[in-house]
């Protein structure tokens, strides 16, 4: 996959746990992107994480991302918070979009929780430019995950609906009820929000084609394990803090990948035997007998033999 050289521009802490980082081109400009796109950051500690681009999709002079420090960081978010400095150079992937705006929607209803606001910052810039009908519903914790509340209040006016966790509950049933035909809903936030959205939309007769979501894509750590590559006979050890995909990359085995979080399906890899703990949201039950997603899934017993 093609990687770009980028230089870290301004970084600023916008809440105690969220750091915004701007990425500048080393040569010329950066590739254009559409609202909802993400890039992968190739950090010097070997971690690669995907982050939504929150800056204006019409501006290719720089990209901006925002990173929330995770309590159980495997090293990616901690590195961005504690070590990344203005002027550092690193590789980033070209932007890819797994969460685009629906082209025929007439009303866009956006639902963000916490750091899930990031893709919607680019959405809002784009929707304002188009003069499109939209609403942003933003649930957050005051002082912790309320990045961008003030900026959005200024930019969006009555498009913005705020739900500060101690004051107002986000009621999905109310939010989805009585919407005109042509409405599409988009959500980004923790799995509990996405599960509730799926359940409520189903109950209210929304077809899946009107409901779009993006999960926080990040692998969880686990116990170390070993895989064998059937075609070369090589063995690759996977550390507790490492994903199988990262271990394969460190061993020089590149697999196509986009989200690095078990949702996009790009890194699907066949295996011949072994016990797999499947942690993805992509593969169907019957596909799991012979395929796994190395970005999140791990070994959990007899050694895995990958068919690569």
């Amino acid at each position: 996959m093609s990687a770009l050289d980028a230089r870290v521009g301004e970084t600023r802490l916008i809440t105690p746990v969220i750091r915004e980082v701007s990425l500048m081109p080393v040569n010329g400009t950066l590739p254009a992107f559409s609202a909802g796109s993400h890039v992968q950051l190739h950090l010097p500690n070997g971690k690669r994480n995907a982050y939504s681009l929150l800056s204006d999709p019409g501006d290719t002079s720089h990209y901006r991302i925002a990173v929330r420090q995770q309590a159980q960081s495997r090293g990616g978010s901690r590195y961005v918070h504690e070590q990344l400095q203005t002027g550092d150079q690193l590789k980033i992937s070209s932007p890819a979009n797994l969460f685009p705006l629906h082209s025929t929607a007439r009303l866009h209803v956006l639902i963000a929780a916490g750091i899930g606001i990031t893709p919607f910052l680019a959405y809002c810039t784009e929707l304002l430019r188009r003069g499109a009908a939209f609403e942003l519903h933003y649930a957050y914790r005051a002082g912790l995950s309320d990045a961008y509340v003030e900026v959005l209040r200024e930019q969006l006016g009555e498009h913005l609906h705020l739900y500060e966790s101690s004051a107002r509950r986000l009621d999905l049933g109310q939010l989805l009820g009585h919407r005109p035909l042509g409405t599409h809903v988009y959500a980004c936030g923790p799995q509990s929000l996405l599960d509730a959205l799926r359940e409520q939309s189903l109950a209210l007769g929304w077809p899946a084609a009107r409901v779009h979501w993006e999960a926080f894509a990040a692998p969880e750590p686990g116990v170390p394990f070993v895989v064998e590559l059937a075609r070369s006979g090589r063995q690759v050890a996977v550390g507790a803090e490492q994903s199988l995909l990262e271990a394969l990359e460190s061993a020089g085995v590149e697999l196509p990948n986009l989200c690095r979080g078990g949702v996009c399906g790009q890194c699907r890899t066949p295996y011949l035997k072994g016990d797999v703990e499947h942690r993805d949201l992509f593969l169907a039950h019957e596909e799991r007998a012979s395929s796994l997603m190395p970005c999140v899934s791990r070994g959990c017993g007899s050694p895995i033999l990958l068919d690569i």
Binding site: L176, G177, H178, R179, P180, L181, T183, L204, G205, W206, R210
Partner: peptide, 10 residues
């Protein structure tokens, strides 16, 4: 009829 309809119509 559809101009007054809401999502949930088939």
């Amino acid at each position: 009829l559809l101009s007054e309809a809401r999502v949930g119509v088939h």
